Amino acid sequence: MPRTSLDPAAVAALTARLSAVDPRSPSGRQPVHTCYVPADRVHASTPAEWGAQALAALEKYSPKDFAALLGVPEDLYGRVRAKLEAEPVEDLRIDFEDGYGVRPTEDAEDADAERTALVVRDWVAAGRAPSRFGLRMKSFDTRALLERGLRTLDVFVTTLGEVPPGFVVTFPKVTSVAQVEVFTDVLDLLGADLRFEIQIETTQSIVDTKGRLTVPRLIEAGRGRVTALHFGTYDYTASCGLGAAHQHLAHGACDFARNVMQVSAAGHGVELSDGSTNVLPTGDNVEHGWRTHYALVRRSLAHGFYQGWDLHPAQLVTRYAAVYAYYRETLEAEAERLKAYVDKAGGAVLDEPATAQALSTSFLRALDCGAVDQAELHALTGLALSDLRALARRTP
């Protein structure tokens, strides 16, 4: 038996000081987008109308012309069309902030809050709600906005009654940890099991006045209620002092903010969402708007941001075209890599458990959004859905 020098009792006493590391990943299905709709324009058929408008835009093109426009395979046309017919909106936010503005009277916003809450309640009762939905309230920028935002939230939640699964509140323009602490305390007062997203759209929400990263402390201040971090393109670039011509998702300032969000959220079970583009596919600008949106969605996906904002129904076309192309382009090659890992067969690439986890997670994301179906996934990987989920969790 080999000789050792370390006293096991002494080592045990030292290592007892270490806390267990238990990194968490987001659980459940993450939508590929969030559609923002001003509260005064939300009604019972809004998700269906977004789908109909997106289909109308797509059907002006043949599969061949659409594929040539975006540089995607022709068969993607049918997949996108089927998605727009079956589930055009995966996540919808009723917007009481920038897209809605300040109403001339308090009663006007009260009425919209009550009315839209009843719309949501009807969606849920009829089984027509998107997989995720909620509202974006006003920020804590000023006392007037703070009071109005909390009143709207109160009216909405009280009218809604029991908080349904998939419901989330978006908390915008956060500038300090104290704002999240207070907001979390207010949610405690409401007595509902409310979850919220933090919008990262100010420089203070990235780095505070003492040079410390803010995002980890924002998540901690939410006391388990924070589900996601959403990036706000235009407010953030404006807060950096960028001119209007340089306020866009692909700017290096946005990359820095997103990198901070990414490393700060890792292990906390918090999702990430990229922001929006204001180049909309409307009128004579459809093709330019589509190309711009498609390129930005692909860029977000390549950087590990699997969700983004959509502000116009026609953006659903390029949202799904970009997401489907992203997953399907590497489907066969990644399936071979995962099969080789599971079979311990070796090959040109020697993958580790972390890569197998990433491959499995990617397949599950593709399945969730409709880029691939379960039968195709099984044929490619030879794995059951339960096997893929176990690999994604890195469990035996």
Rank of each mutant, 00 (worst) to 15 (best):
F171H: 10
D22P: 08
F363D: 06
Q30H: 03
A375Y: 13
R79W: 12
A12W: 11
T46G: 05
A253T: 15
A117K: 06
D368F: 04
D95L: 10
A44K: 03
A314E: 14
L316P: 12
A108P: 00
E74F: 13
R258T: 07
R151C: 08
D368I: 02
L391R: 00
A244G: 03
A9F: 15
A322D: 11
H303G: 01
Y294H: 07
G283P: 01
D193W: 14
P104N: 14
E376N: 00
G134M: 07
T330V: 06
L58W: 09
L118G: 11
Q179Y: 15
L272P: 15
R299D: 05
E97R: 01
S5N: 15
F231L: 01
R115D: 01
R115S: 07
E85G: 00
N285F: 14
W309D: 13
R3L: 05
T292S: 02
R3F: 02
A57F: 10
V174P: 15
A144P: 03
K210S: 07
L242I: 09
R81E: 08
S386E: 00
D208Q: 04
W50H: 01
T184P: 11
V174K: 11
F171M: 09
L338E: 07
E87V: 01
T158N: 10
A379S: 13
V169P: 01
T116L: 06
V119C: 08
A302F: 10
A86V: 11
L213G: 08
L242H: 09
D188K: 14
L367M: 09
R212V: 04
Q262F: 13
T355W: 00
R389E: 03
T158I: 04
Y236A: 06
D185C: 04
S362Y: 07
D75F: 15
R115E: 02
P313R: 14
I206W: 03
T202H: 07
A358T: 08
R29I: 04
P38I: 03
A366Y: 08
G28H: 01
Y306H: 14
R24L: 10
T381W: 07
P26R: 00
Y61L: 01
H246I: 14
P130F: 12
D122R: 09
F96V: 12
A12D: 15
A10M: 04
A354G: 14
E334Y: 08
T116K: 12
A39P: 01
R212A: 09
A371Q: 03
F133S: 05
K64D: 07
A333L: 08
T277E: 11
D122W: 03
A221N: 12
Y77H: 12
V120Y: 12
V317R: 10
F156G: 02
A113C: 13
P164R: 06
A245P: 13
G191H: 13
I219A: 01
A333Q: 14
E109L: 04
G127D: 06
L18I: 11
L249H: 11
E162N: 10
T170P: 00
Y36T: 05
G134P: 10
R151E: 04
L350Y: 14
R394H: 05
F96L: 08
A9R: 13
V168W: 07
D122E: 15
A392C: 03
A375K: 15
L14D: 14
P26G: 02
P31V: 06
L153V: 11
C369K: 12
